[in-house]
Design a protein around this nucleic acid. Sequence first.
DNA 1: CCCATATTTCTATATTTATCGAATTATTGG
DNA 2: CCAATAATTCGATAAATATAGAAATATGGG
Lengths: 113, 113
Amino acid sequence: MQPDHAIRALAALAQEHRLAAFRLLVKAGAQGIPAGVLADRIGVPASSMSFHLAQLAHAGLVTQRRASRSIIYSADYDAMNALMGYLTENCCGGEDCSVALSGSDSCKEPMIR
Amino acid sequence: MQPDHAIRALAALAQEHRLAAFRLLVKAGAQGIPAGVLADRIGVPASSMSFHLAQLAHAGLVTQRRASRSIIYSADYDAMNALMGYLTENCCGGEDCSVALSGSDSCKEPMIR
DNA sequence: CCCATATTTCTATATTTATCGAATTATTGG
DNA sequence: CCAATAATTCGATAAATATAGAAATATGGG
């Protein structure tokens, strides 16, 4: 994953309504949630929701499919996975962050020099 | 971790120069890097670097200490760890993203309904 | 004490992002 | 085909973020 792709994904999640939408989509699983339902649940106008969903889609974090009149959004787990991988490799010292760096002494870089 | 804290951390990383700085700091380990060296390596004016470092610090992702005339920044691994934990719990279906969700069938939510 | 160094704060400006009503584009039921 | 529904795109602001020079604030050497 290129840094600019990671930045797009991070920026996509770094907004109240988009993070809320993505969390709902993650919980919803592959079934997904229609755009209008997301707008209602989050409490933003449809046009605002559409703007935010476009950013999540541009970052590759969600996919969309049409089902009758609705457009149903789903979280793209692979994309989120890739972002986690990028962060683990580049921002956590190259090891699994939650295991290796929390008070552990297995860090590649010594904590005190 | 509260959602707004996660958003601050995500936003702090979602910028070219800040992500570059944070990656350098992660690689540097506890030794850290002075503000001026970061500015030089990244190629931004000192005042711009200071602006970005303030955002990273406000998000809790870096710590700073004075050493003579320099102010040395270091990555805060615990904060990054907390962010990874938040993302894993809230944006990856509640399991370790890189293990459970990449084509695995161990997801809590069924992939197809 | 003075000067050079390192950094931050201030100030102004440019750029990007967010908001939301109105208009537009699909889709379906009747 | 027409009316109703679901979304998106458009357009106009508003708000937040980024940039960078200039001024101000510490620190330490001589």
